[in-house]
Design a protein around this nucleic acid. Structure first.
Lengths: 159, 159
DNA sequence: CAAGTCGTGGATACTATACATCCACGTTAG
DNA sequence: CTAACGTGGATGTATAGTATCCACGACTTG
């Protein structure tokens, strides 16, 4: 079981957008270079975040990505669902109904006990991720780094 | 992110061993046919469960696998760790230290906030699985099926 | 003690998914 | 109009899971 790296990328990019000065969209080129990521592939994940309604994409020169909602209203789970999908890592193959020991249909009215356990565990995992917003993550970034990022990304000085 | 099917196989096999009459080892051939699984591949997973100390393997004719501990002392997490490994699905690539926006080493004394969140979620997942034993799972198998399995597997009638 | 049953471990091949890139297209600011 | 930027499709590569086979050692039965 392995989570795709795209999740880490999406999370860091969303976090960076939350750190950056408000209305300024960051082009994918800046995002990719900031973390040393392949720009073309990162674009796919940014698309997913946009489709999920977490980011807002502005085309054209001086375009780019910005958060579609306040950082306090975007959870880690939101980002994960957008990139990895909400499905459980465990997919029951119903092997209880196969082979010489196959359970009869009337014995399978209730979901397989094993599948139920895995579903509950998956829900616990999701709840844990739903409890954290981008806002809270920003506060855990070292202040020096946060200041440096704002300076680097906020090309638009106070007009 | 996808959990390997081997986990489901291992879980069902362990559950079946917990259902079966006590001291009778079940050969992998029986286990494979009971669920319609490829015997050679299932053997790999049974090996993993044996190495982890959950099953006890008896070589020779009339050999096979049995639980190494009472069913009440084996958790779903035990089986999962044995087959899938205990590692978190999220592996932090430390991209915060890469690219033009790289954080300085002195800013990385604390683990990345994103990685921390993922670790906590993984722990929540594991705790949920640790809370369930094979014993509890057996009780959720339909009684008719349980009886049928005992009859089918317990070739050794009361002597 | 001989033969057949069973688990062990290594080597090998296939397949699905994630990773990665490129290009043609539509949109927009200057 | 043109250059910058996001969109979406087509394509290729790499990694991990799935699956099989075979040689070997252990053990039980006859």
């Amino acid at each position: 079981m392995k989570l795709s790296e795209g999740v880490e990328w999406g999370l860091h990019c969303a976090l960076l957008l939350a750190e950056a000065p408000a209305g300024v969209p960051l082009p994918r080129r800046v995002l990719a270079e900031h973390y040393g990521l392949p720009e073309a592939y990162l674009a796919k994940h940014l698309q997913a975040l946009t489709r999920a309604g977490l980011l807002h994409a502005t085309p054209g020169p001086s375009g780019g990505f910005r958060l579609a909602r306040p950082a306090g209203e975007i959870t880690v789970l939101d980002v994960l669902d957008a990139i990895e999908g909400p499905a459980s890592p465990f997919v029951c193959q119903e092997i209880r109904q196969q082979g010489t020991g196959a359970a009869r249909p009337e014995e399978c009215t209730r979901p397989c006990a094993i599948a139920s356990v895995m579903v509950r565990a998956h829900q616990a995992w999701r709840e844990s991720l739903r409890a954290v917003t981008l806002d809270q993550l920003v506060n855990r970034v070292p202040q020096a780094l946060r200041k440096r990022n704002r300076a680097k990304l906020g090309t638009d000085a106070p007009s």
